[in-house]
């Protein structure tokens, strides 16, 4: 008990650090989308949009 009172400050600090560590791990594992995947999706979507833009010119009589 005496030891707890004496080191309470450090104990709280360690628990806080552990909490932050667990929180960050949970965030990375469960909520953060892989940035490489996000970029890849953006590129794939852009490529399909570019294809549609090119093809739309075929249907547009005013296009060159």
């Amino acid at each position: 008990m005496e030891w707890l009172k004496k080191n309470a400050k450090w104990l709280v600090l360690v628990l806080l650090l552990l909490g932050v560590l667990v929180g960050v791990t949970i965030y990375y594992k469960m909520f953060r989308r892989d940035p490489v995947w996000v970029e890849q999706q953006r590129n794939e979507k852009k490529k399909l949009d570019d294809l549609d833009r090119l093809l739309d010119k075929q249907g547009d009589p005013n296009a060159k």
Binding site: K47, D50, L51, D52, L54, L55, Q58, G59
Partner: peptide, 21 residues
């Protein structure tokens, strides 16, 4: 659905024939 004739620009999209979207 739309049907498109092939044009040389479609090579950039690895498309080598008439296509359907």
């Amino acid at each position: 659905v739309a049907f498109y004739k092939w044009t040389p620009e479609l090579k950039n999209f690895k498309v080598f024939g008439d296509l359907l979207r």
